[in-house]
């Protein structure tokens, strides 16, 4: 009970969205292009949150496959910006270490590591690292070659000059956000999810 309540509060606090207003009109689901590839539709995710069904929501592939196209939020009659809810759930899933789509999280981590160390994305190196770390070496190999031959994948990328400043920004953001939501990390059930 306490755990469900704290989950609802964490989603609301992170997303800033009035979750309780959803009355299941399903406009979000009818407009969602990704829903046909996922286990649950956006309106179902909202219902799980309202009911405090933390695991159902966090283990869904929907929160990761959401392409952030923002059609759901722009059509919601109750002004719920589902984009912010999906983002909140991804962050809660990461802090609870239950990530349904590990490849997408890995991609995000590699992307941000690249930004942190170089300041800009170097597409060739980032794709290569992603391929190495997923072990999925051969899909998209033809694509990489084509892009390279069209001079669209330069091997040397540009770096920003002030990378120390960039590192400070990253450090501050991760520290401040961890502190801001630390209170939700208290587990009343000894660490297990409800």
């Amino acid at each position: 009970m306490f755990n469900s309540q704290s989950f609802i509060e964490e989603v609301k606090s992170r997303s800033g969205q009035p979750i309780e207003l959803c009355f299941q009109c399903q406009k979000c689901a009818s407009g969602c292009y990704m829903a046909r590839f996922t286990d649950h539709a956006p309106n179902q995710i909202l219902r799980y949150i309202q009911l405090g069904l933390k695991e159902k929501a966090l283990r869904s592939s929907m929160i990761w496959l959401c392409s952030s196209c923002e059609i759901c939020g722009s059509r919601c009659p109750n002004g719920i910006k589902m984009f912010d809810v999906m983002d909140a759930l991804k962050k809660i899933a990461i802090s609870n270490n239950i990530v349904a789509e590990k490849k997408i999280r890995l991609f995000n981590d590699i992307f941000l590591d690249t930004v942190r160390s170089k300041g800009r994305i170097h597409e060739a190196l980032m794709m290569a690292e992603y391929k190495l770390r997923t072990g999925d070496l051969f899909s998209d190999l033809d694509l990489g070659l084509k892009l390279f031959l069209k001079r669209k994948l330069p091997l040397i990328g540009k770096k920003v000059k002030d990378r120390k400043y960039l590192d400070v920004i990253f450090k501050r953001c991760f520290d401040m956000e961890r502190k801001a939501f630390a209170k939700y990390q208290v587990r009343l059930d000894g660490g297990k999810l409800n």
Partner: peptide, 22 residues
């Protein structure tokens, strides 16, 4: 001059503050 990556989807999926800070 010396612009940095906006963080794109990876930043807003990972850290809200970073997604605005970049």
């Amino acid at each position: 001059e010396d612009w940095i990556c906006c963080g794109a989807t990876s930043a807003h999926s990972t850290n809200q503050l970073l997604a605005y800070a970049l």
